[in-house]
Write a protein that binds this DNA or RNA. Structure first.
Lengths: 183, 183, 183, 183
DNA sequence: AATGAATGAGTTTTCATTCAT
DNA sequence: TATGAATGAAAACTCATTCAT
């Protein structure tokens, strides 16, 4: 429901109807409509964050780690498009949620750590602010998801793979050490 | 109000209180709460789009054009941070608005055109899907704005300038022709 | 539960939880939440009323009969404080119950009869409206119970006995024949 | 509405209908149904308490002061029977209210002070616990009100006056010094 | 005897919008 | 212009009760 109509536009009765139960039953399992949204978030975001952390702790090159992170986030679209829709539309940008849920920034933090270590090892140019670079990287991924969610970008299997390649290629090239003198 | 609490969470009374008038007066100037949002959008987004179009029609290199586009979008933050918040959060992501207002995608389209012409002239690598590349570029900018909006990135004068440089540098380097063989 | 939270505020689930069973089981033993309250009342009030009737039929002086009635009501507190709470708060004051259960006024009626016979025998002053006097007597007792229920009066063993003595002493003195000219 | 149907049985719509307005308007003036009840209480109980305090600070005899206190409480019935109904039924006995509103015990405290000073001056017998005596006095008054509220006692103008006289007479006689040896 | 998922009527509450003043 | 009382549709939420297991 949230994916299709948005949080505020979805009524509790709609959610229950979709689930094939009476609306009252929803309050057996959730204390409020709000908690439904938060549960969706926690159950899915948690998995994402864990997988990203696993990547962060591998011994791969920064470039490969970034590739994996991008893949984890972007491929979620193929498996759980509705979840992505909700995360992108309802949570990632909602002021209320942002304040309540500190986990939201974890992926960006992980990307920052990867970049920092890439800079230390000389793989990535050292003159970039890693926090800013992480935001740019994450934003590129996120906007692709948004394009898919809003139907502005094609999102077939091949498109998803192409997007993954493009994002990683463009940004890791932009981050690469040899370019430090470009400007 | 929209910037601080989000569209749905802001009550008409809140908006009027912020403006220092009674809520009834709001209906003298706007026909509905929705029209308030649409007005904010039209009055501000239009200016942005025009300035971006002007850049697009210059004879600068693709790189310089992208630099200017990024500057236009990011510097708005310094002058109208709340407007930026609203545009980023409420409008750029809302499906309802998307349908009504085709202007929303104009900046991404402009970026795509710039990239396409850069590819034709040989300045940018030709193997990238320009639509996808434009989305990545716009997403990078947008996420930086979000970072500022949410206070996760510093947004002083120097920070804004640094961000501008980083975004453009990283992405134009990533787009540059000489890197086509990087992967 | 009724004693602690009041009838309307107590949910069936609360009652069942207190009893250590699932709420569904309650409907094996009672046909409704209402019947639970009525059962509490019937099982306890009936005993009280019977004991008061027994006193009324003795040959004791009015004063001794009143003493016994007060004792019966007040000492219940020691043995079943929660039952007393429910009787005092939920039933004695609820208009719905009043209508259904005529037993409610029986103690006051018994007190009135005792007073009437005391007036006939010359033991009690004859210029008091016996109905009114009975209400005052019962009210004195009832408020002491309320004070205990709400923790505003100490309710140890000695306190209960002292209260019994005070209520009876004050009121029988006030009722006594020799005082008829007091005002 | 509360007087006629009780707090829990009265719907917000009933209250609004009684007032001749739409139910939404109620939330213009009160934040919740609960606040309506609390407002009724505060606006009326406060007046009562103030008047009782005024009596307490006069130089009258304890007997006269008690007479005035009884008159203040009982005569409220004549002027504002519905208010009395609500105070008696919904507030004075509700566990939730009792805990929230400390003012509820003020009248009993005032009566206790009057009794204490009467004992010091020798006007009243000294062997009574003043807290207990105050509760008995207040209970007598309160139960008369309850009798009127529930229609079990006649409450015409003459009846109210008679009740006033009876309560005061019986109880002040019971409290009087000369009776200390009665038991 | 016991459970607790499931129901849905009934209530409170919210809030954009209207409109007399 | 400006106010804020008034409206009422729409929504969230509660909870006694049922019933398959």
């Amino acid at each position: 429901m949230f994916a299709r109509k948005g949080y505020h536009t979805s009524r509790v009765g709609d959610i229950a109807e979709e689930a094939g139960v009476a609306h009252g039953l929803l309050y057996h399992y959730f204390s409020s409509k709000d908690e439904v949204l938060e549960t969706i978030f926690r159950e899915n975001w948690g998995v994402l964050v864990e997988r990203i952390h696993a990547v962060e702790q591998s011994n791969d090159s920064a470039r490969d780690q970034l590739r994996h992170v991008a893949a984890i986030i972007l491929r979620t679209w193929r498996h759980q498009p509705d979840v992505v829709r909700v995360l992108v539309r309802e949570i990632a940008r909602s002021p209320e949620m942002q304040e309540r849920i500190s986990d939201l920034v974890k992926p960006i933090e992980a990307i920052r750590h990867i970049i920092e270590r890439g800079q230390e090892s000389g793989e990535l140019r050292a003159d970039l602010d890693p926090a800013l670079a992480a935001v740019v990287f994450y934003g590129g991924i996120d906007e692709v998801l948004t394009g898919w969610v809003l139907g502005q970008l094609p999102s077939g299997v091949a498109d998803v793979e192409a997007a993954e390649r493009t994002v990683v290629e463009v940004l890791t090239a932009g981050f690469a050490a040899s370019l430090a003198a470009a400007d």
